[in-house]
Structures are given as structure tokens and as C-alpha cells.
Design a binder for these strands. Structure first.
Lengths: 135, 135
DNA sequence: ATGAGGGTTATAGCAACTATAAGGTCAAGC
DNA sequence: GCTTGACCTTATAGTTGCTATAACCCTCAT
């Protein structure tokens, strides 16, 4: 059984991406220039779909498109050591953890602000006051 | 004692902001058009500085410049109820918590990826494989 | 008077899309 | 056979919150 090729809209639906985003990735070279049918429509194979899934999964994990370009080039060198991949994932984990700590700081600050407001008018509102104080 | 006015660079230093950013805020109307000296240099009062501190503190808490525009307008209506301010902070807290949960999901995913890699070559690397699987 | 270190404006670039315009294609229903 | 609507094409501009660059002006110490 031959694989059916997908149009950009079908691929978009299949991968929960927007068609414009797919074309955007192509324009950046993250996806190869798609095959075209006789009237210029893009056609995608299962392999193209896999590559897009890879990109979207990586994006969902917080990698930048530049990071992803690198990850993709790793995945194209099937005989290379996977140490570099490992390192890249580990570094991303570090970044994510930093960001979490960051946000937990904000969370506490915001909670503190909410706690210190007793209602009433702005003039007496300790929130607005707090925001004007330097740290 | 009269207040000394600050130049943009001095204000920048005093508030840990960059001069360009201050001018940018002015261009957006977040800061009022600054007073100028005879040769066109911007001059800032303590009140201007307070407003900038407010903006920067709010940015540090993750508010967008649009949010901040709103917060500033609240703080300019000193007799209004602070309920709206409260609500805005509470909403931001919700968003921050969502983002934290999000990132904790990523954290686990990344950890899982790292755990499943046994070293070796890319071809056998379960990380790359995992990234190509749809969720 | 010259150079360093401020200041001024306008414009372009960054990431990762998203939106819009202006048009070509295709399958279905009448 | 024709129209309608949903798709496709490209190119360009907008989004957020800055940052960088260019090209110029001002001030002060040497």
C-alpha cells in the first residue's frame, strides 16, 4: 500500500500545527522544501510528518528553533554518540528548573501582595504602594 | 531643599533600567513626556522615578506593559476601590501558577528523557525516538 | 580644540509566530 | 457548465519588549 501524501492543511490537522507555521518552518529550513503537485500545492510524506512531530514535541519541551535545528542535525547523524543530545536535554532541564524557581518567587510575591490588601480605596491600598517601593 | 532632576542615564542607573528602555516607555505613553533642559536633554523628577519603579516592579512580577498601563491608571484614581487592582494581581497569580505547572510538566518529561538514554549512538537513542512519537 | 562620555532621533532587528491581502485551485451541488 | 466555499499560493506587516545601529549634538576636562 502506497502512502497517501498530505496537503499542508491535512498535515496541520494531523500534527496540531497551523498551516502557516508549517510554511514558516520550511522557510527557515527546519523542514525541507516540500514536494509540489501539478498546481503548486505542497505534499507531505510520513517522513515529513515525523520531522514536524519532532519539531513540535521539542518546541513543547521549550526548545528554541535554533536548539531544534541542532537536535535535528543530531538525529540525522545516526552513528554519532548521543552524548551531545543528552547534554542538550540536560541543559534544557537546568533552564526549566531555573525558570520554575523564578516563577515560584513571583508566586510568593503576588501572594504577599494579595494578603496585604484589606480592601478599601486605592489611596490606602498597600499593593499599589508596594509596587512603588524599590526592592 | 529642592529636588535634583535626573538625566535619563542617571535615572537608568538609579532604577536598574537602560536609558533606551526609559525612552521606549515614554514613547508608549507609560511615562509622561519628560521635561527637557535647554539643550533638549530629558530631566526626571522623583515622581517620574516612582512611576518608573512601579513599572519595573510590575514587569518583574510578570505583568505585560498593557497590564501595567491598567495598573497605572488604577493608581492614578486614588479614591476608587482597589478591588480591580486586587483582581488583576489575583489573575496574574493564577497565570503564574499555571505556568509553573506547565514547566513542572516539562521538567518531568525532560527528566524522563534523560533517564531513558543509556548512552551509545544516536541510532539507539531513545531520546530522539521519543521526540518523534506523537503524544 | 579635542576627545570621552553623555545626550538626541530614527530605523531595523530579535523570536516565533499571527494576520492580512490578493489571488489560484478544486470538489460538490444545482 | 457554473457557482460557491473551502482550500491552496505568495508577500508583507504586525505582535511583545526590548536591543542594536547610525548619525548626529552637548558638555566638560585636558
Amino acid at each position: 500500500m502506497i502512502e497517501p501524501k498530505l496537503t499542508v492543511g491535512q498535515l496541520a490537522t494531523a500534527t496540531d500545527t497551523k498551516a502557516v507555521t508549517i510554511r514558516y518552518y520550511e522557510s527557515l529550513g527546519l523542514l525541507p522544501a516540500a514536494q509540489r503537485n501539478s498546481s503548486g500545492y505542497r505534499l507531505y510524506s510520513a517522513q515529513d510528518r515525523d520531522r514536524l512531530v519532532f519539531i513540535r514535541r521539542s518546541r513543547a519541551l521549550g526548545f528554541s528553533l535554533d536548539d531544534i535545528r541542532e537536535l535535528l542535525s543530531f538525529s540525522d547523524h545516526r552513528q554519532a554518540s548521543c552524548a551531545a543530545v543528552d547534554a542538550k536535554i540536560a541543559e534544557q532541564l537546568v533552564q526549566v528548573r531555573l525558570r520554575i524557581r523564578d516563577l515560584q518567587g513571583l508566586e510568593q510575591e503576588l501572594q504577599r501582595l494579595i494578603d496585604c490588601c484589606q480592601g478599601g480605596v486605592i489611596e490606602q491600598c498597600r499593593i499599589i504602594e508596594s509596587l512603588t517601593e524599590r526592592h
